[in-house]
Amino acid sequence: MSQRRTFADQSFSLVFGGLTLLGLLILVGPVFIVLITSFTTSASLKFPPPELSLRWYQALFDTTRSAHIHRAAGNSLWVAGMATLGASILAVLAALAIGRSRRPAARALEASFLSPLILPSLAYGLATLMFFSLLGLRPSLTHLIGGHLVVIAPFVFRTTLATVTQLEPALLESSASLGAGRFMTFRRITLPLIAPGIFAGAFLAFVASMDNVPVSLFLSSARTDMLPIRMWGMMESTLDVRVAAVSGVLILAIMVLMFLMDRLTGLTRRMSL
């Protein structure tokens, strides 16, 4: 079949092709600009950098001069790890609870368990600050874990729920008819089948906690400093080029993690579904 390329069709290809190219450039460009900037010799953020060096990485890994950055990074990792662990356990249970039900109660629970994704977490962050202070509690990493847990649980809940709803009921029934108890069926049949969903969700939850600003902004203090808040401080006061080096480390970590998670859980497929 011959297709006549009209002027209108050509203009469509031109406009859509142009926007696509520009869109791709806008999507990835900034990440690479940060990576390149992190190797600058200069103390300013001039782009492109006059010369390349590891100067700012050396400054970043200096244990005395960058001690506060290291402490903030340690706090962030601890909080993200604990919050992800807690959120994963609770969210997997909740997903199992409603995964095979189509009753209105299940819909309502699903919506409320996902609600922290949509509600502005900045309002929630302030709410947690007021909540913990009025309870008379002093700032601590435990509060941060609690606040992060609520905000990141929906990520695990959503991906796990997607895998639970796809479970073949016949598999569970045949396991039961072969004499396996509920726990045995869960451990040998259900868990292996939903594991990719759990891991993909836990990965997204961990990243969301590491990046969280709205809750950490209100709950972190000088003693319980968190990495994104520390980086924000470094950007606001003097434009410290070490921010670029921290960014470089985090971007590389994310790239490696993404690659690993894609191998383990098919993350890319899961995200586009």
């Binding site: 999507l27 900034p30 953020l45 980086m231 950007m235 670029a244 985090l250 993690l257 993404m258």
Partner: peptide, 20 residues
């Protein structure tokens, strides 16, 4: 390409735009 910026911290992406 879509996930990389999504998983990169908002603080880093904001920082990138300062450079730009």
């Amino acid at each position: 390409i879509i996930l990389l910026p999504l998983l990169t911290s908002v603080v880093i992406r904001t920082f990138a735009w300062i450079v730009i």
